[in-house]
Design a protein around this nucleic acid. Sequence first.
DNA 1: CTGAAAGCGCTTACAG
DNA 2: CTGAAAGCGCTTACAG
Lengths: 339, 339
Amino acid sequence: MKRPTIADVARRAGVSKGAVSYALNGQPGVSEATRQRILAIATEIGFSRSSAARALSAATAEAVGLALCRPARILGIEPFFMELISGVEAELSARSYALTLQVVADHDAEIAVYRRWWAERRVDGVLVCDLRTDDRRIPALEQLQLPAVVIGGPGGTGELSSLWSDDAAALTETVEYLVALGHRRIARVGGLPDLRHTEIRTDAFTAVCQRLGLVDAVTVWSDYTGEEGGRATRRLLSSAQRPTAVIYDNDVMAIAGLSVAQEMGLTVPDDLSIVAWDDSPLCRLVHPPLTALGRDVPAYGAHAARQLLAVIAGQPATRVQDETPHLTPRGSTAPPRQR
Amino acid sequence: MKRPTIADVARRAGVSKGAVSYALNGQPGVSEATRQRILAIATEIGFSRSSAARALSAATAEAVGLALCRPARILGIEPFFMELISGVEAELSARSYALTLQVVADHDAEIAVYRRWWAERRVDGVLVCDLRTDDRRIPALEQLQLPAVVIGGPGGTGELSSLWSDDAAALTETVEYLVALGHRRIARVGGLPDLRHTEIRTDAFTAVCQRLGLVDAVTVWSDYTGEEGGRATRRLLSSAQRPTAVIYDNDVMAIAGLSVAQEMGLTVPDDLSIVAWDDSPLCRLVHPPLTALGRDVPAYGAHAARQLLAVIAGQPATRVQDETPHLTPRGSTAPPRQR
DNA sequence: CTGAAAGCGCTTACAG
DNA sequence: CTGAAAGCGCTTACAG
């Protein structure tokens, strides 16, 4: 099958290629009647503009890039990324933008990908995940002047647009809820310590525990895998003054933690309360179902995509706080059993 | 920052643009010494070919498309897709191909996307997932003559290349294993019934159960979600002649099934053995860890990508059987408790 | 409102 | 081995 070109449409419509282009782009230069006729013919013969020709002449790729910097096994198990991607994609495809995905090993590789995409004019902009403290990607993107939206913050995003949720508020609310239930020894299994949102949560945890006089509050670090989450839990539950409640930085670690607690003969929630960050269907899969901090991740992705499209359209950078994660109490939290 | 073009490289190297193009593409037409000099200059000034210009003149997009036809919530929770994507992507990026992703609502929308990609010359080929019986996408792709590899089969893929794993053999092995443990009442919670691989597994299940004289063998249908998997399990375990072993068509349903069994006061594996298809870290997260049918999903994706690249390069279609899923026994299977 | 033409940045026969 | 030129399929000032 031969692909129709703009010339085919022009011929059938009896107009010039320029007229077809104006009609397609909704620009002045053709009468409304002619525009409609041209559009009808285009649909009829199955014409879509060559993205390459359009990219070359209009200097716009109509594509957005997303580089994921996590190993396959972690990428797969966390629902977060796929939900984010589907939200991003829904917004993009509604505006005929394509999503280009690349998995990278580290930030150096990621910056190299950005440089290549920029030099190849492959994408009009990028979405940046997993913001770190002193993130080298930020100055690199600023230097390239490649439109970008950082999913993360607040702060540390330079002149780039950013979108974040108020993790500090969510964590504070969670600790207050546990304290209201009667917990005094609360621990936290954190994610990768150099991620900006981990830092924000840690600071908030320290602050609220201090304010409420929880002297035994402790954070241990992990890497979002079930393995490490389980190991951290085992360590916490083996200590002399074991916590009566643990907050996990993702759903996968929380489920692993639940499993370890049960294995050690503890009853959840009587002996141990568990709260998971990133509410996902996984949290409702286990028994008892997990109390979790959730938000609409696809919507978050859609917002980021919309924000990026605005930057690509030439609008100034914006910094936006999205919906704050909300706590959904389920069977994994209760007042601590008296001992 | 201005993006360097091939003309910039040519000027610095003191050669024509054509020479630079030959050097870049590893084609004859320049001496080895000149080629090296050109390449060094390109690297030095951070030059990468404009993908648009290249696509337009060479009629190759250097991109591959993947349309995912599942709702966000299912896409997120199944590790399978993200693992597949990372395998595909690793293979593609090693050859400088981009991966374009789109989420679609149904097969009509998916076919429309293929048509658009084809007309836009956006991708050089596509990877097709979730093959169904009488899949309308197959003739649509054949008509477009868009290079494609179907991840699924065997059979029902027309003239297109395809890649599959021998699910029938894996299922047969699993049933034989359960029978060897002493199980006689084995049930199966299947995935969406119109998917080709569900059909293959069902046929294999029926056949092996008949051969081994398991008259109570029953398959119930589900949709891969934990919710439905749990519901199906509850129904199975409430029947008069409840099964002593259940095989689930994915990990998520198996975990939900485990949770339901425990909720109903049954001990896994003594009262009920559980086998999950799609071994993933999730299976090791729960207690007891799940016996599972696993395979290297990223490698599967990488194979499919390689196969597609071969078709794009003009080689004839191939039909390849990949690694057969292998059973990893864990704590969720044991001989049935005597009653 | 329309047409003819230049130009985007490459690739690729075609001469030399 | 190299250079000049046409062409890929669009967009976009510029004349009419």
